[in-house]
Design a protein around this nucleic acid. Structure first.
Length: 214
DNA sequence: AATCCGGGGAA
DNA sequence: TTCCCAGGATT
C-alpha cells in the first residue's frame, strides 16, 4: 500500500499539537490512572465541556474506587446525573468498585471491567501511563478514513493494526490527544479542510472536498 | 462480523 | 416523535 502519507501526517499532526491541544484537568501530566480512567469513562458519548463541569466535584467526592465502594448509589447518581446515561454509568462504576481494589495498569485487563471497551482501555493507559498504544473512536476513524482514503481498512482489527503502525515512536500520548482534537475541531463531520495542515496530501481533500459552498 | 442496546440530541 | 449516533455488549 501507499505509505507516503504517513510520515507527513505524523509530522504535521505533532506540529499542529504544539499550539492546538485542548487543556483539561484529566490531561494534566500528573493525573492519576484513576483520574484519567474516570474522565475517559465519562467522555464516551458525552462532550468534553459537559464532563468538565462535573469532573472536579466527582473527584472530590469520589477520589478513589474505595470512595465509590463506600458510598451509596444515590450520592453517585446526584453527581453523575448531569452527564446523562447515569443509570448505566452508576451501575458500572458500582460494579467496578466492588470488583477491584485498584485499577489494572494494563489495557487488556481494563477491558474486563464493566462497560470498558477498547477505546476507554487504550485511552486510559496511553494518557495516564504513556503507553504506546493506538486509540480508535469515531473521530480517529473519520480522520484516518479521509486522509488515507482506500488505505484505511474496514475492519476494526485491521484499523488497530494500521493505527499502531502510524503511531510516532515514543510520542503516542501527544499524537493521540492531537488526533482527537483534530477530529473535534477541524476534521469534523463537515470538515474545515482549508485550515487543515493535511490538505496538501489528504485523500479526501484531493478527491472529494468541494469547498465551503459545496 | 453483525446486530443490539440505552438514552441524549437534532431534525 | 422519529431518526441518528458512539461506544460497549451480545450473539
Amino acid at each position: 500500500m501507499d505509505e507516503s502519507r504517513i510520515e507527513p501526517f505524523r509530522a504535521g499532526l505533532l506540529d499542529w499539537a504544539e499550539d492546538n491541544l485542548r487543556q483539561f484537568p484529566w490531561r494534566d501530566l500528573d493525573a492519576s490512572l484513576y483520574e484519567v480512567f474516570v474522565a475517559e469513562f465519562f467522555l464516551t458519548q458525552t462532550p468534553a465541556a459537559n464532563v468538565a463541569r462535573v469532573y472536579p466535584r466527582f473527584l472530590s467526592e469520589f477520589p478513589s474506587l474505595d470512595a465509590i465502594r463506600c458510598s451509596d448509589v444515590e450520592s453517585l447518581v446526584e453527581v453523575i446525573e448531569p452527564l446523562g446515561f447515569y443509570n448505566m454509568r452508576v451501575e458500572a462504576l458500582d460494579e467496578i468498585a466492588t470488583s477491584y481494589d485498584s485499577l489494572p495498569r494494563d489495557a487488556d485487563e481494563l477491558t474486563e471491567l464493566t462497560r470498558v471497551g477498547d477505546y476507554v482501555a487504550n485511552a486510559t493507559v496511553c494518557f495516564a501511563l504513556d503507553r504506546q498504544v493506538p486509540i480508535l473512536d469515531r473521530n480517529v476513524d473519520r480522520v484516518y478514513g479521509r486522509v488515507f482514503g482506500d488505505d484505511w481498512p474496514d475492519t476494526k482489527r485491521e484499523q488497530l493494526e494500521f493505527a499502531d503502525k502510524v503511531l510516532p515512536p515514543e510520542q503516542a500520548r501527544t499524537y493521540n490527544l492531537a488526533l482527537l482534537d483534530l477530529g473535534a475541531a477541524v476534521c469534523t463531520p463537515t470538515p474545515k479542510c482549508p485550515e487543515c495542515f493535511a490538505n496538501r496530501f489528504c485523500d479526501y481533500y484531493e478527491t472529494q472536498y468541494a469547498g465551503v459552498d459545496g
